[in-house]
Every structure is written in structure tokens, then in C-alpha cells.
Design a protein around this nucleic acid. Structure first.
Lengths: 339, 339
DNA sequence: CTGAAAGCGCTTACAG
DNA sequence: CTGAAAGCGCTTACAG
């Protein structure tokens, strides 16, 4: 049980072995030039022999600049399906920053606490949150920027501005003859789920539609499946809006099992444009969210804040794009009979 | 453009305002007891007024113990579909550690570098990698444990030991009368993709099967779709093993579009047990990977290493479970005719 | 081009 | 129970 190889190599040890002062070793790591080739070589030899690397904690405590930004990822899978992380990382790198992607687990309260901890940890110059956080940025010693999520966009641009997507979907369905709607919601702890539900309900009233109401869901296929299975046979529902693609898939499955054809008898919309929805049968109508545009904008805003620059202009186009595939079609001419 | 609220509050400032020494403030944060209630209250008032939080970087530089572990997540989505992260986090917490989940973007070389950087950063006591890494743990000053991934398990337990799953699948298909196989591989930069391909090829030989070969894929639905679309009409393939569920979904879609019934004409297997595969039609036969068991084992191993304890016994059962759903059935009695 | 001094913000013995 | 001293491993002016 001897403690093997556990002692940390310090810059002093490297300096001693190389026969130079520790400041010179420090320079070797921080400056590109300004070292005599001979000195450089001596240090290089010792560094690679000892496999030494500077302690970043110590460095960042002394140097004001750490060159590191943190991207806070929610632990839901929605964001990982694109190359968003790679894009953000590359953008940060182009501006001379490292991006560390941190997933924070727990409820909103815990997550906010941990983010504040990261902010005061001294390791980062700025924080990018890829999901809304119940956090006052003023409480943080470093800039915190949140991506304009679906719902935030809504709030920024005036009540229900971006919600036009949900309304557009419903209008489209109305134009196809649908009259009785049904919403399978996401967990109401998520702002995006709350807002989709809100807009659904608002639009039902606004357009004078009939709604069988809203089922509570939790993003899973099972929740969509259950919601449709429990639908009364005579509900008359012909159009279903699910909170995401998983729930939509479950809904379609349940409909098919009940002998309802999709889309001939009932149309189903998802949200997120997951890869599998494109290839399922029927393929899934959905909403593609341009998270890369949101992320790009957010990280540029963050870097500007870290540098005390003016925030950049917002230039991206629409974030949400409706994709209509096989799961949506004209409403059936006659009502379904009870099976 | 005044720099607003950017100066960091130090422990000295808190101490000054509370009328105590900075060590007393330090004690307020590190020890549960040992402060006079009056002193505690004075400090508490100042802390909440200034919203002060100790600089963790400074703390971890001075104190040898940081109480933090890092979990390195690959930027592929496979792992985020379960509550693995929550489980790991809870396990760490129960042992008195914080788990910080870090996603590292880039190719294997870059990722290995960044992990080494984290290891020497001084911020963590141990690192758990949830994907294989081209990294010599001996080069790290702190313990690094990698979850026994599909392929690693294989190597640990002797060549092809765990590969039994792929072989079991193929044997099952043979028992259903299938004779001509086809594999849609994952990107060969991934160890798991390489190993599935290897075992496929080995088993073809071992069981004396006919194989139409291996298509190069990249985990996406599109790659599965293309592979099947490009299959010669007279290939005679009746059993397809896809590298993951996405590719399998694409394969099924392409087969249906070519007028091949699934599973009547052709059977398709996926891998990963993604949520949507359960509800698609036909539902997807797949392999469920018990990543939680792997993760649990890995983090216990890591914590033991950090504490210089004996590593715990490996007690989990089989990691991979074959799930047979509608996409797999008996081989067609007669060969398909060219359409 | 390189070395001696000071200090980043905290914690940990050690006194009182 | 609380304060004065030392030091974690580095970098940044400042001299030479």
C-alpha cells in the first residue's frame, strides 16, 4: 500500500533539474518566444522526462486571465443531438478561449447553486448556460449568458412572439380540416414545456377550436403512448401536438394499436427533429430548432461581456422551422366510429 | 462603460466588515462547529449582504482535498438517454464527493490532452472517463478510471468474451432460418464500432454464414438508409445488424421503401435501446446496455483509488441484454425476387 | 535573456 | 474560541 507516484511535480523541481530558475520554466509555458534555444531545450528535456504540466489552479489564481469559459448543459438529451458543442467550442477557441462543457445534475435550485459556485470558483472568466436557470446574473462575479431558449425568446420579443410556431402548426392543421385538438405536454418544470402548453391553450381559444385538453407528459415515448391509449374512443380528436418527438412516437404507436391510421385518421406533430423521426414510418412531422444559431449568438455575447465590449447585434433568422412529414395529413371526412 | 461589480470580494473584506480575522471567516465555511454563535451571526450577516462565496480555486490550492471528481463524457449522445449521470452524482455524493460532469469535444488526441490537463489542474481528486481514451493513466497525477465499455470488457475478460452478445444475436437469427447477413457498421474511430464489426466478421466465419459484407456507417439514420438502398436487389440478405438504433431505423425505412416487409422479408437489429425504438412500427429489436452498472462499478473503483483503498469486487451481472421486438422474425421461405 | 521578490485567496498547524 | 504566520504553485512586474 505504498503511495506510488502520488507526489506532484512542481515548477521548482523542473527548474532545479534543468539548472534554471522557476521563473524561466514559467516563461517556457506562457510565452512563445524570449528564451534562448539552449535554455528551452534543457527545460523541454526535463519536462518531457518528468511529464510535467503546470498546475492550472495555481496559474489561474495568480493570473487574472484563465482563458476558460464554461458551458452549462442541462442533463436532458435534447441538445446533444447536434454538433452544437463542437461549434461553440470552435467559436470560443477562435477568440482565444477554452470552452469547458459542464453538465449539472439536479433540480433547478441545486443547479443554480452549482453554477454560482463555478462562477466564484475562479476557474472561469464567463459562463454560458444552455438552459434557463433561476439565477440572478448580478449575483455572479463573472458574466453569465443564457441562450435565448424558446420561451426566453418569447419573453424577450414580447409576449407570445416566438410562440407563432405553435400557432402556425395549429393553423396549418386547421387548414387541413382539423377541428378537435389534443396536447401531450412536457413536464411543467421545464420552461419550454410550460410555454408550449400555454400557447396551445391560448391558440385554441383564439381560433375557437375544440380541444380534448392537455395530457401531462414527461418527454418520454411512454407518456405519449399512455395519453393516446387513454383517449376516449369518441373524443373526436384528429390532431395531436406532442411536446417532443419521443412523446409523438409513443402517440403514433398507441394510435396504430387502436386501429387508427396515421395520418388518415389522426395527425401527430412532434418537436425537436430527432434523427429517428425522419426514418420512422410514418415519418414524424416536427419542429427543427436551430440551436446552433442560439448558441453562436450566446457565446459571442458572452465573450463580448468578458472583454467589456459592446454586445454584438442579433442577426440570426427564425430559430424554429416547421417540418411536415408523413404523420400529418388532412382531417378525416367522417368522424371515427367507436371501435 | 464603467466596470460594474467586477471586483471580487475576498475573505479579508468579509472579515474586516464582520470585525473578525479572516481565519475565523475561513472556519465559518469549513467547519460545522467551533464558532461562537455571536461570531457566526456577525459573519453570516456580512456574507449574505455581500453575497460572498469562497474562491474554490484558492481553497483547493491550499487544501490538499478538493472533494471533487470529474466525469468525462463523450460528446456522442449515447449516454445521455438514461439517468446515468444522476446515479453517478448521487453515488459520489454519498461518499462525500462532488461529481462534475465535463464533456470534452474533439478527436481522441485532443480529448486525451484535455483530460490530462484536468488531471494536473489541481481542481479534481480523481477522473472517471465514460468512454475509452488513448491515455496512459500513469501519466496522470491523480487516479483515472475508465468505464468498462463494451470493447474493454471484451479485452479484460479475454478476447471476444463479451462479444457473445453479437454472436448470440446472430445465432438467434440463424435459428430463425436466416442465412445471408449484412452489417451496417459505426465509425471505426470508435472502439465499440470496431469491435462490433470484428465480432460480426468473426462469427460469420465461425458459423459458416453468408455475408453481404459490411457497410461503413456513422451512427446516423441516413447511413443505415443509404446502406440498404444501395443493397443489390438480389443480394439475398435477410438479416441486418446495425451498429446502433439510428442506423437500424434508417435501414428499416429504406427496406420498406423498396417494398420489403420488415420482418417478413428482412429482419433488422439495432443497438442501444433508445426510447423511440420501442414505439416505432415495427418496433426495434436492439441491445440494452446497462450503463448504470458500468458507471456504478467505475465510480466505486475511482473513489477507492482516490482513498488508496482496495478496489471493490466486481459484482454486476451481464451488461448487455438482447431485446427482441417486431423488427426481427423468421427468415422468408423463398428468396425475394428482384423488384 | 534570466533571477530575486511579492502576491493571488485561501487553509492549516500553532499559539494564546 | 480566535488571531498571527506560513505556504499551496504559480505569474508578473522589476532589476540586472
Amino acid at each position: 500500500m505504498a503511495d506510488v507516484g502520488d507526489q506532484r511535480i512542481t515548477i521548482h523541481e523542473v527548474a532545479r533539474r534543468a539548472g534554471v530558475s522557476h521563473q524561466t520554466v514559467s516563461r517556457y509555458f506562457t510565452r512563445i518566444e524570449g528564451l534562448k534555444p539552449a535554455t528551452r531545450q534543457k527545460i523541454e528535456a526535463v519536462v518531457s522526462e518528468l511529464n510535467y504540466r503546470p498546475n492550472l489552479v495555481a496559474r489561474s489564481m495568480r493570473a487574472k486571465r484563465t482563458g476558460r469559459l464554461a458551458a452549462i448543459l442541462p442533463s436532458t438529451p435534447n441538445l446533444t443531438h447536434s454538433n452544437l458543442l463542437g461549434t461553440l467550442s470552435a467559436l470560443a477557441q477562435a477568440e482565444g478561449y477554452r470552452l469547458e462543457v459542464v453538465t449539472i445534475v439536479g433540480d433547478a435550485r441545486i443547479r443554480a447553486d452549482r453554477v454560482l459556485e463555478l462562477a466564484t470558483s475562479g476557474g472561469f472568466e464567463g459562463i454560458l448556460s444552455l438552459s434557463p436557470l433561476p439565477l440572478d446574473p448580478a449575483r455572479s462575479p463573472i458574466p453569465i449568458v443564457t441562450t435565448a431558449d424558446y420561451d426566453e425568446q418569447m419573453h424577450c420579443q414580447g409576449e407570445l412572439a416566438d410562440a407563432s410556431v405553435v400557432r402556425d402548426i395549429m393553423k396549418h392543421l386547421v387548414s387541413l380540416g382539423h377541428q378537435v385538438f389534443f396536447h401531450i405536454a412536457g413536464p411543467q418544470t421545464y420552461a419550454s414545456a410550460r410555454s408550449r402548453k400555454l400557447v396551445y391553450e391560448t391558440t385554441v381559444k383564439e381560433l375557437g377550436l375544440r380541444s380534448h385538453g392537455v395530457a401531462d407528459g414527461d418527454w418520454t415515448g411512454r407518456s405519449g403512448y399512455d395519453a393516446i391509449q387513454e383517449l376516449p374512443a369518441a373524443s373526436g380528436v384528429t390532431a395531436v401536438l406532442a411536446a417532443n418527438d419521443y412523446a409523438a412516437m409513443g402517440a403514433i404507436r398507441a394510435a396504430l394499436e387502436r386501429g387508427w391510421r396515421v395520418p388518415d385518421d389522426i395527425s401527430v406533430f412532434g418537436w425537436d427533429d430527432f434523427d429517428m423521426g425522419r426514418y420512422s414510418t410514418p415519418s414524424l412531422s416536427t419542429v427543427a430548432v436551430d440551436r446552433e444559431a442560439l448558441g453562436r449568438e450566446a457565446i459571442q455575447k458572452l465573450i463580448a461581456a468578458v472583454r467589456h465590449d459592446e454586445p454584438p447585434e442579433t442577426t440570426h433568422g427564425p430559430i424554429n422551422r416547421i417540418i411536415i412529414r408523413e404523420s400529418v395529413g388532412p382531417a378525416p371526412h367522417s368522424q371515427r366510429s367507436t371501435s
